[in-house]
Amino acid sequence: MSEIPLVSELRAKFGEGIIDVNLEAIDEWVELNPSVLVEVCQFLKEAEGFRFDMCNSITVVDYLETDPKKAAKVDWEPHLEVVYHLSSIATKLTLVLKVKIPRWKNGVEGELPTVPSVAGVWATADWHEREAYDLSGVNFLGHPHLKRILCPDDWEGHPLRKDYEMPLEYHGIRGR
């Protein structure tokens, strides 16, 4: 994989925006500052030689160990990772972008953390972001109509959060 010129070009262009690069991972990933996400995506989509024209998937991974015994052992602080899997039909390259965000906005439980939306870059990101919002609770700023897609509109909570608890009852249906 010719990731190396890509990384150097990204570093040259966005400098501080590139937080971390891991080329040893199974799928090489680049960690970004959320503030440059949209520009980086726009650049990656249009830059000659890369042309990441397809956004395969947007995943949110919740890093929170609910078991206090295990939590003592882990080497990370609780956070969310938004993972963008990109690929290119033109150049057949693949790339993983990562954005780390806090689990709650300003540390207030219930306030969803925000990430700029890339729905303007790839139309497919629209539904992926809706799904991520629905299941993992990330507010994608600038998304045209961010609403739940898989769960009902009046569902409470975001099921793929590690501390999520199934509601006791939903419209008279026993939950737990």
Partner: peptide, 10 residues
């Protein structure tokens, strides 16, 4: 159908 928390222009 209940309204979602986020205002939806559409």
């Amino acid at each position: 159908m209940a309204t979602s928390k986020i205002d939806d222009p559409r």
